[in-house]
Simulated scan of single mutants.
Amino acid sequence: MASYVFAFVVLVLASTQAFASDPNQLQDFCVADNAAKVFVNGVVCKDPAIVNANDFFFAGLDKPGDTNNALGSKVTPVNVNNLPGLNTLGISLVRIDFARHGLNPPHTHPRATEVLTLLQGQLHVGFVTSNPPKLFTKILNKGDVFVFPQGLIHFQLNIGHENAVAIAGLSSQNPGVVTIANAVFGSNPAINDDVLEKAFQIDKKIVDYLKSQFWTDNN
Score class of each variant (00 low, 15 high):
Cys45His: 07
Ala70Phe: 08
Arg95Leu: 09
Asp97Arg: 00
Gly186Ala: 12
Pro48Cys: 09
Val31Thr: 01
Asn218Ile: 15
Ile206Leu: 12
Asn192Met: 11
Ala166Lys: 07
Leu157Thr: 03
Arg111Val: 10
Gln156Tyr: 09
Ala2Cys: 07
Lys74Trp: 02
Phe58Gln: 09
Leu103Asn: 09
Gly65Arg: 08
Val10Asn: 12
His161Gln: 13
Thr129Lys: 08
Phe136His: 11
Asp66Ala: 13
Thr113Val: 14
Gln120Trp: 02
Thr76Pro: 01
His109Tyr: 11
Val75Ile: 11
Glu197Met: 10
Thr76Asp: 05
Val10Phe: 11
Gly102Met: 05
Pro23Phe: 13
Thr16Pro: 00
Val44Met: 14
Ile206Asp: 14
Leu152Arg: 02
Leu61Met: 11
Val40Lys: 13
Gly65Lys: 10
Gly126Thr: 06
Leu135Arg: 15
Pro64His: 08
Phe39Asp: 15
Gly72Asn: 04
Phe214Val: 12
Ile180Cys: 00
Gly126Met: 04
Gly65Thr: 06
Val195Glu: 03
Asn188Arg: 14
Asp193Ile: 09
Leu26His: 15
Thr88Gln: 06
Asn24Trp: 09
Val5Asp: 15
Lys63Pro: 04
Phe200Trp: 05
Arg95Lys: 13
Gly126Cys: 12
Gln201Asn: 15
Asp66Thr: 14
Gly121Ala: 08
Phe214Ser: 13
Leu61Ile: 15
Arg100Trp: 01
Leu13Trp: 10
Ile153Cys: 03
Asn104Thr: 02
Asn182Asp: 12
Val44Ile: 13
Lys204Glu: 08
Gly186Phe: 05
Leu93Gln: 03
Leu13Gly: 06
Asp28Cys: 01
Leu116Trp: 00
Gly85Lys: 02
Val9Gly: 09
Ser130Glu: 04
Leu123Asp: 03
Gln17Leu: 15
Asp97Val: 00
